[in-house]
């Protein structure tokens, strides 16, 4: 699935819901899907600041694509992380650098994107982009 296709898929999934409770239930279900991080990876180095809940994000570059893993102690945060990962996982650094994340608006989670909101979604997107920039820079060094 291309990055575009995965965004469309998410938007379509969320279009089925007409009230916030269904949307949240779906996010919570997604949170349950996330593969938990091992405790020895839940360390400060991977912790994203800016949220009331703890949120860890790990990335590695495999065959030119970035693999992300995330976890949180709050289920809604976990669900939102999983939702992002569905779009950004297994993409090249350049694809992520080019992504503007406006699909978040289209699935009705816009209010979560406000930088003053303490759920870490904004910080998480920043961190995802940062990883992509670093992996791209590293790849260029190796050329």
């Amino acid at each position: 699935m291309t990055i575009q296709e995965s965004k469309v898929e998410l938007i379509e999934e969320f279009e089925m819901f007409d009230d916030w409770m269904d949307r949240y239930n779906y996010i919570i279900e997604m949170g349950k899907d996330i593969e938990p991080l091992a405790d020895d990876l839940k360390i400060k180095k991977y912790l994203i600041s800016g949220c009331q809940s703890q949120l860890w994000l790990i990335a590695e570059l495999v065959d030119g694509k970035i693999l992300f893993k995330a976890d949180s102690d709050a289920i809604i945060t976990k669900g939102i992380a999983q939702l992002l990962l569905r779009v950004v996982n297994n993409r090249t650094p350049q694809e992520i650098i080019d992504e503007d994340f406006s699909f978040i608006d289209m699935i009705g989670l816009k209010e979560h994107l406000s930088p003053t909101r303490s759920n870490g979604l904004t910080s998480m997107i920043k961190q995802i982009k940062l990883y992509a920039l670093v992996f791209k820079a590293k790849a260029q060094q190796q050329l």
């Binding site: 949240y24 009331q52 809940s53 102690d73 289920i75 809604i76 945060t77």
Partner: peptide, 13 residues
């Protein structure tokens, strides 16, 4: 078993 942040977020809704 429930995080305070999750409760607060839903109550806000």
């Amino acid at each position: 078993g429930v995080h305070h942040y999750d409760i607060g977020s839903l109550l806000d809704q």
